[in-house]
Amino acid sequence: MAEQSGTAPHDRAAELHRALAEDPRTSELGVTVTMRGEQVHLSGTVVSAERKAEIDMVVHEAEPGLRVTNDVQIVSAAEPTGAEDIR
């Protein structure tokens, strides 16, 4: 758990980023963590709603007092409609 008082916002963001990467429940390296006071903003993409919820869980456990805005998106698994011509 990150120390909440007297810790610089970028350090707290770094600790949360590490937690999301190293916690086996998430193992997400592709989530951007931005701290603003006692708020944290999460962005990036994951492959399912379940994984988005797991990110919430890990962040809340690491910093229970934070207000979390989870803007992580679910990446599309749709067939492509076009193709690029490589020249």
């Binding site: 492959v47 749709a78 193709a83």
Partner: peptide
């Protein structure tokens, strides 16, 4: 040489398609 990053979050689909001569 053309380089394409096909990480799924970048192409936002099941796959990307590239036609080569």
């Amino acid at each position: 040489v053309p380089v394409r990053n096909v990480a799924q979050p970048v192409i936002n689909g099941a796959y990307a398609r590239y036609r080569l001569p």
